[in-house]
Write a protein that binds this DNA or RNA. Structure first.
Length: 451
RNA sequence: GCGGUUGUAGCUCACUCGGUUAGAGCACUGGUUUGUGGUACCAGGGGUAGUGGGUUCGAAUCCCAUCAUCCGCCCCA
C-alpha cells in the first residue's frame, strides 16, 4: 500500500469547497453571458507546436509535455541523445497541456475565422497547467476565466470589459480596484528618454515597483542599461500622486508632443470618458502609468485588478493585443481581453469571509425506516417528491434508526422523514425538523405542503 | 533553476538531555439508548515517527542522502 497524495501543486475539492467554487464560477459566468459573451471550450491537450514560442523561453520550460505514445525511442539515435534534453524533449513529445486560454483561443479564432461573427465575444472557464514551483496562491493546475472581444479596434470594448469588472465584483461584494495604463504610455516614456530599445527591460523593472519600491527598481533600471540621469527624470514621474486627470496632465507635459505617449493618453481619456456613463461608481478605476504587466503581447490598454482590503497580488488582469492570431496565419486581428484570477478571488473571499451561506447538500429531506416494508414505501415517496422538484434522498440500508439521523445531521439535511410500523399502518409520515427538533405526523400531501 | 522551513494516528499537534510500551484534542467504531441526530458519560480501534542509510548499548530526537511540503527569489497570473 502506498501513502495517497496529490500530485505536486494540485488540489482536490471536496463538496464544501466545490459549493464555494461553483458559486463564484456561476456569478462570473452569469455576468459573461449578460454581456453577450459566448462560451467556448478547447482541449486540455494541444499540439506542442501551438504552444511553444508563445510564452518566451521561461514559458516553454513551464509547459507540461506529454510523452509520445508507443515506442517513442525507436526512431531516435545516439546523436539525438547527445543534443541534450532540451532538443530531445521535442523529439519524444508532440503534445502538451495548455498553459493559458489565450493561445488556444487564438488558434481557435484562426481556424474558425469564416464561421465566427466578428467582433467575436467569447468566454472560457477551464483549467490550465504550469510546471511552476507551487507557492502561496500559485498552483500547477488552476482555472482561468477569460473574456475576450476580437475583431474590433473600438475602445468601447475596453470600456465594456471595465464595466464587466465592476459588475462582477459588485455581485461578489468584493471591494476591488482596477488599475489601468496603456503600453503606449510606457512606450512614450522610454521614447522621451531616447531608450526605446530597452522597452521590455523598462517594463519588467517598473512592474516590480509595488513589490520592491522605487530605490530597488531604479537600481535595476541602471543594471539594465538606463543612466542615473534617466532615473532622476523618472523619479519625478514616479513620486507624483494625483487623481486620474492630474496624472494625465502631468504626463502630457512630460511627453511634450511625443506621438506614442500622446496616443496612449488619448486612449486612456476616451476609455475613462466612456465608463463615466456606465452607471457604476468609478472611483475605483485608477490610471497609473507605473503599471506594466509581464506579458509581451499587449499593445494598448492594460488592466490589473486588486482586492482592496487585503494584499493578495492581482485578482484580474488583461489588455489589448493587436496581433493575437498572426502566429496562426491571421494577421491584424486586434482584440482585448480580461481574465479573472478565480483561484485568488476564491482565496480572497475566503480570507475576508465573503461567502454567503451555501448549502452543502441539496437534499431537503432524508427518508428513514426500520424494515423492508418501510424501505419500499420510502423509495416510492422519495421518487414522488423528486418528480415534484423537491430534492430528497433515501437512506439506503436497513439499520438502526440512529444511523440515518446521524447521516442527515452530518450532511445538514434539514428534515428527516421516518416510516415505522405505526406510520405505515396509518399511511402517514413522521417528519422531523432537524434544526428545531420538532416532529409532526403528516400525510404525504401535508408533507409536500410543508416543504 | 536558487535559498530557507517543515515532515509523528484520518486531521491539528505534543513528547524536557538520545533511554522502558510514542501521547492529546478532533474525527472514527461500539455502548449508556432495539423509534431519533446535534449535548454528556464510558469503552475501543487506529503508528514501520516521509523514505533510505549512518552514529550509538539504545534514535521520533544527532548526522548524511532522498522525496514531499510550505515560504521567499527568478518568473508568472
Amino acid at each position: 500500500m502506498q501513502k495517497p497524495s496529490n500530485a505536486r501543486g494540485t488540489r482536490d475539492f471536496g463538496p464544501k469547497e466545490m459549493a464555494k467554487r461553483t458559486y463564484v464560477f456561476n456569478v462570473i459566468k452569469n455576468h459573461f453571458e449578460q454581456f453577450g459573451f459566448q462560451a467556448i471550450e478547447t482541449p486540455a491537450i494541444e499540439n506542442l507546436s501551438t504552444l511553444t514560442g508563445k510564452y518566451g523561453d521561461e514559458g516553454d520550460q513551464l509547459l507540461f509535455k506529454i510523452l509520445n505514445s508507443g515506442d517513442y525511442l525507436s526512431k531516435l539515435n545516439e546523436q539525438d541523445f547527445k543534443e541534450g534534453s532540451k532538443k530531445f524533449t521535442y523529439k519524444v513529445s508532440e503534445k502538451g497541456l495548455r498553459y493559458d486560454l489565450t493561445v488556444p483561443f487564438a488558434r481557435f479564432v484562426s481556424m474558425n475565422r469564416n464561421d465566427l461573427a466578428f467582433p467575436f465575444r467569447r468566454f472560457q472557464m477551464q483549467p490550465v497547467w504550469r510546471a511552476d514551483r507551487p507557492q502561496k496562491g500559485r498552483y500547477r493546475e488552476f482555472y482561468q476565466c477569460d473574456a475576450d472581444i476580437v475583431g474590433s479596434n473600438s475602445l468601447l470594448n475596453e470600456a465594456e470589459l471595465i464595466t464587466l469588472f465592476q459588475s462582477v465584483f459588485n455581485s461578489l461584494r468584493l471591494k476591488a480596484h482596477l488599475v489601468i495604463n496603456s503600453r503606449k504610455v510606457l512606450a512614450g516614456v522610454v521614447d522621451v528618454l531616447g531608450m526605446s530599445d530597452l522597452f521590455v527591460d523598462f517594463a519588467v523593472a517598473i512592474d516590480k515597483l509595488d513589490k520592491i519600491g522605487w530605490d530597488a527598481v531604479s537600481n535595476e533600471l541602471v543594471e539594465r542599461g538606463f543612466s542615473k540621469d534617466h532615473c532622476v527624470i523618472l523619479a519625478d514621474l514616479i513620486v507624483f500622486e494625483g487623481n486620474n486627470l492630474a496624472k494625465i496632465d502631468k504626463l502630457r507635459q512630460f511627453f511634450n508632443g511625443n506621438e506614442q505617449g500622446e496616443a496612449g493618453l488619448r486612449e486612456i481619456e476616451q476609455v475613462l470618458d466612456f465608463i463615466s456613463k456606465n452607471g457604476y461608481d468609478n472611483s475605483n478605476i485608477i490610471f497609473d502609468y507605473r503599471l506594466a504587466r509581464g506579458l509581451s503581447y499587449y499593445t494598448g490598454l492594460i488592466f490589473e485588478g486588486k482586492a482592496k482590503d487585503i494584499p493578495f497580488g492581482s485578482i484580474a488582469g488583461g489588455g489589448r493585443y493587436d496581433n493575437l492570431t498572426s502566429d496562426f496565419g491571421l494577421p491584424n486581428m486586434s482584440g482585448v481581453g480580461l481574465s479573472f484570477g478565480i483561484e485568488r478571488i476564491i482565496d480572497v473571499m475566503e480570507a475576508l469571509s465573503l461567502f454567503p451561506d451555501i448549502p452543502v447538500s441539496g437534499s431537503k429531506v432524508l427518508f428513514a425506516y426500520f424494515d423492508q416494508e418501510g424501505q419500499i414505501q420510502a423509495f416510492q415517496y422519495v421518487n414522488e417528491l423528486r418528480r415534484l422538484g423537491i430534492a430528497s434522498e433515501i437512506y439506503p440500508e436497513i439499520a438502526k434508526i440512529k444511523k440515518p439521523f446521524e447521516f442527515a445531521d452530518k450532511k445538514k439535511i434539514p428534515f428527516v422523514a421516518v416510516l415505522g410500523e405505526q406510520e405505515l399502518a396509518e399511511n402517514k409520515i413522521n417528519l422531523k425538523n432537524m434544526r428545531s427538533g420538532e416532529q409532526k405526523l403528516l400525510t404525504l400531501n401535508e408533507l409536500i405542503q410543508s416543504l
